[in-house]
Design a protein around this nucleic acid. Sequence first.
DNA 1: GATGAATGAGATTTCATTCAT
DNA 2: TATGAATGAAATCTCATTCAT
Lengths: 207, 207, 207, 207
Amino acid sequence: MAQRMAGADRQRQILDAAVRVFARQGFHTCRVADIADEAGVAYGLVYHYFGSKEEILDRIFLERWNVMLEVIREIDAGDAPARAKLEAIAGFIVESYRHDPDVMKVIIVEVTRAANSFGRTHLEKIGEAYDLIAQIVARAQADGEFKDTVTPKFAAMAFYGAIEQVLTGWIFDLLPAGEAEYDRAKGLVVETVCGGLDATPASAGTV
Amino acid sequence: MAQRMAGADRQRQILDAAVRVFARQGFHTCRVADIADEAGVAYGLVYHYFGSKEEILDRIFLERWNVMLEVIREIDAGDAPARAKLEAIAGFIVESYRHDPDVMKVIIVEVTRAANSFGRTHLEKIGEAYDLIAQIVARAQADGEFKDTVTPKFAAMAFYGAIEQVLTGWIFDLLPAGEAEYDRAKGLVVETVCGGLDATPASAGTV
Amino acid sequence: MAQRMAGADRQRQILDAAVRVFARQGFHTCRVADIADEAGVAYGLVYHYFGSKEEILDRIFLERWNVMLEVIREIDAGDAPARAKLEAIAGFIVESYRHDPDVMKVIIVEVTRAANSFGRTHLEKIGEAYDLIAQIVARAQADGEFKDTVTPKFAAMAFYGAIEQVLTGWIFDLLPAGEAEYDRAKGLVVETVCGGLDATPASAGTV
Amino acid sequence: MAQRMAGADRQRQILDAAVRVFARQGFHTCRVADIADEAGVAYGLVYHYFGSKEEILDRIFLERWNVMLEVIREIDAGDAPARAKLEAIAGFIVESYRHDPDVMKVIIVEVTRAANSFGRTHLEKIGEAYDLIAQIVARAQADGEFKDTVTPKFAAMAFYGAIEQVLTGWIFDLLPAGEAEYDRAKGLVVETVCGGLDATPASAGTV
DNA sequence: GATGAATGAGATTTCATTCAT
DNA sequence: TATGAATGAAATCTCATTCAT
């Protein structure tokens, strides 16, 4: 039986359990009871802290996604070259996965591509990230750092898609994973994608 | 009341209806009754032709994915440069979307990234496509057409992820869609991604 | 595809198939399709010859049960001692089982004790057999051949129950079955049951 | 709306309701909703306590049958003559019916003879009872109390079959029922069946 | 007579959510 | 806060029966 505990801690406990359960069984396949069990908490307590099963997923997604948006904004605010900024973003996403693969799995598998089931609830939030990346590209194109062959939005999608797919590869064991791979991936995604964006393509060859 | 019809035609009719329904409402959100209604067919007939709702999704996925694997294999068998092969693949995927966006939406949203819910049923099939692309990259690296900075598998994931994300952008209205965009996208994905793969990066600049 | 055939033959063919299917899978567990398959006949043809699945079971039961009633009446009409008559009845039932165990299995398992499900449709018919046996006992009691310790109906039930249970034992492999056992059973049931009915109990010992 | 209640009590309540419903409508003919209604409980609560409709029947059967096995074992352990033991067993079964006719009806009609539908799940359990009875007979034959004309198993089947059929007669109104009949039946079954087993058949005449 | 596609009512089962304690 | 019993609205799936051909 769970001891009294500060509300915030309990929420955290349930949220963390939900991440594990969603990652393991999938949002649609798991039951609220599974979350309660995993958290070692009574059935009804989940509903004391969250209005619905979906709200739990919302919270998991928003917590992490907002952090990412924050980080991207900070990166963007710096005055590094665009390529370095993209590398920092890729680095952050990879680190996020390294730090807590389950959360990223849930976000990718249950939210990012599942905009259907959840209605369009999170689409806007998701789009914000793409827009921020697009802005970086746009500014780089204006500065002449990047070519303007592609629209910034298009570039942002390709960039983000490449990263997400690499994570998906790790998640589903389609790509070798491990500490070394994580470290290399950060640069390689940018290398691969930005190779085609750079205005001075020779630079790609020098890395 | 539905007229008598050859079995294969009825299956097609139900399959097509299912694609529309899955695309519109999502696999988990729709009911088998919705599919029957959409097909203008009695409830039970769906179960006359398919063992379960899931089997319908399986069929939709496999039909299309097998075609894609076939096409990739054919492209791969030719002796064009790797870059042209990748462009042909990207072109095929984009054309697939243009021709039947609903099917691609279902595949991307309900299958490709949802390997959780369906068990790992289709993971292998999905992986085949990545492997074929990786082979093309590997051979290009051996030939000196591509650099070998990244592993072929990694490159394949980045490449496929970029395309899929562009499609996702169209699907969820995060990226402007339309005939012109579709045509441009084919080349741009390759341009963007392969720019970093090309051994002679200058070529990227000439496009 | 089934050839044209006289109606009666087709009915027989379906009826025989149904016996096998009911015996193997049970009435509630099998589907009409199973019967059609077993008969090597098209689905719809079953409904051409029978109004419902239940009607098939009715026919199977009535055909056999009426034969049994007929036989019991004939035996009863003779002027053998009651004990011989009962032995003849037991003999006939055992022979019925030996000749077509499936029919008896269906009758015992699906009809005789299942008077609930079928409403009381066949109760009266079933009761006729018990009454005929009871009559034999009653007359034997009047003649002094049997004691009148028990009511004729009670004796009839005990007698029939003993036989049916022995058959049940064979059906479910709780009792060793085989040609020799069948032959011995005929007399033993009577020996066992009638031993307590006989007015001259010593006779039991002489068998 | 049902009040909160201890889990065990609720199970009992549902179990008792199920007995009434199965007895009245038959297992295959009733719906789980009928059980819930009869218990005055919400639909889903039945599934809160039992995994399936079949599990409910299993429980009803096992609860009662295990009691009977226990009683038979106790009777068997005593040192009364075999005939007295059989009479005690018959007495217990009849009392069981007198005490709760519905349970016995369900066991006889839905389980004992329906070994088909339930797979062979309970066959072994059912057989245990026959075996125990057979043991009593076997020992009596060894002691010379019973003749060894019939195998013990055969005798056990005949004995049990006679009782069950008498109960069936009461259940389906083929045999006059009532307090007096119940009391008389206990001895009469044994009298009838054991008359043929007794080594000293004269004793049968003295009852 | 013969076929098997078509129908749809209904049964079991699940599980998110509520709420009495 | 905490508990888990209670609720009941769906959803899936089955299958007896009908009927066009």
